[in-house]
Design a binder for these strands. Structure first.
Lengths: 233, 233
DNA sequence: GGAATGAAGTGTAAAAATCACACTAATTCT
DNA sequence: AGAATTAGTGTGATTTTTACACTTCATTCC
């Protein structure tokens, strides 16, 4: 059944930039989740998970649905990034893409096996394959936003598992910000925010002194946020 | 001539949040440019300038065109804000709005008389009339973004005329951030960035000591920006 | 033209935050 | 038992931020 309008309309899509991080890897690196396209255009090329928005769903719901359908990921907190809409960005005609991004811990998020997710894969953002559409630009925009944001909001924790060590946290920041940080000063600063709770547990199975495990106190952060609390790394 | 598609498509609009500021007013206040709608829906209600995107123009070009057509304003630097797309936001059906915002000096921007701009008017953002669609939400989002942004990027200058005094600049920051700032500390900080050029001129026609007039050195800022220069008020 | 007005313009000392820097402690492996 | 490896900790120097009050000068008013 065709749909007819008095004026031409662009098509509307959403795309998801999912940042993943594996704290266990020696060569810690930010990763991005891509899927291999199995239809034209750009068949066989890698692309961001995403697709067309349905008429009755919100933009964010569309992004969540496409993400789940294409990669098996669900329950991620998506945040709107930017809307891309140059007339030439899609060879099929005018297509507007509203992009969303999210941070996940790579080890705790298994890519569901039974679905379309066969073709979903993590890529180090330093070593991207050729991408469909303008997805390279979209990813660059997302990385910029992540770098800007991670310094002023405690969102880095979302990339780590529930329990993590201070060294893991520091390495994460060093990876995302591409700098090195002083261990003592970093710990002092993190401690000063009083956002971490010592679980009492320690890391096990390492061939060296076991590190304390901490969790991020989301409730406390929400409280502090209301009163103009400022976080900064 | 009708346009037909195999799947339904939402309509696509742009909306502009134009912040204006008049440094000469005693009760300095942020203003927002609104137009009175002369067609349904919401006929007679105030709304953000904006309208439908044409198939061959970029989103930003559409925003600029609508802004010019409806208010006479041109040559403003628009920055994309957010995309609003809940299914119920427009009674005519599914309409997505990509919003853009800009800062202008209210005195130097005359609202062109000959155009549709008859119905364009500045409103203090503390005293908004009832607004069409979800434009209240859009404005709230824009104000939040402006407050966040003005502290870390020297965009406040766009709200002032080309030549301004340090007191005018301070009052502007106090207005936008809704705080009061120490005069000496403010001046020290501004001076430390070396982004202002003393024009050698002074303010005239005031019943008190004349203040020095400064201009913002855009070129220098662009240079510094490349090398990771950080601005903060 | 002298006095009153009112904002412009200026410095310093105390407090806080940031930075640079190196050793001991705990655990595992052999 | 000892080697290997990362965890964990404190201090002093430097820089940045903060709090605070008087003099200067162009205009206006008498």
């Amino acid at each position: 059944m065709p749909y007819t309008y008095t004026h031409p309309r662009p098509a509307l899509t959403v795309d998801c930039i999912i940042f993943g991080y594996d704290h266990r890897l020696d060569e810690a690196d930010l990763k991005i989740l891509l899927i291999e396209r199995d239809i034209e255009p750009f068949r066989g090329k890698w692309a961001l998970p995403g697709g067309f928005v349905r008429m009755e769903e919100t933009l964010e719901a569309a992004a969540k649905r496409e993400l789940r359908e294409e990669t098996g990921l669900s329950n991620v907190y998506l945040e709107q990034l930017y809307t891309f809409g140059t007339p030439e960005r899609d060879p099929r005609g005018r297509v507007i893409s509203v992009s969303y991004f999210a941070l996940v811990n790579l080890r705790s998020e298994e890519l569901a096996a039974g679905t379309d997710a066969r073709s979903a894969q993590w890529f180090s953002f330093k070593d991207m394959p050729a991408l469909a559409f303008d997805h390279k630009t979209i990813i660059e925009t997302a990385v910029e936003r992540l770098r800007g944001k991670v310094r002023y909001q405690p969102i880095g924790f979302e990339l780590l598992p529930d329990k993590f060590t201070l060294t893991e946290l520091q390495t994460l920041y060093e990876t995302v910000l591409e700098t090195s940080l002083d261990k003592r000063n970093f710990r002092k600063k993190i401690e000063s925010y009083e956002l971490l709770r010592d679980t009492g547990e320690t890391q096990r199975g390492k061939a060296h002194r076991a590190a304390r495990l901490y969790t991020f106190d989301h409730k406390r952060y929400k409280q502090l946020e209301k009163y103009g609390f400022l976080f900064e790394i």
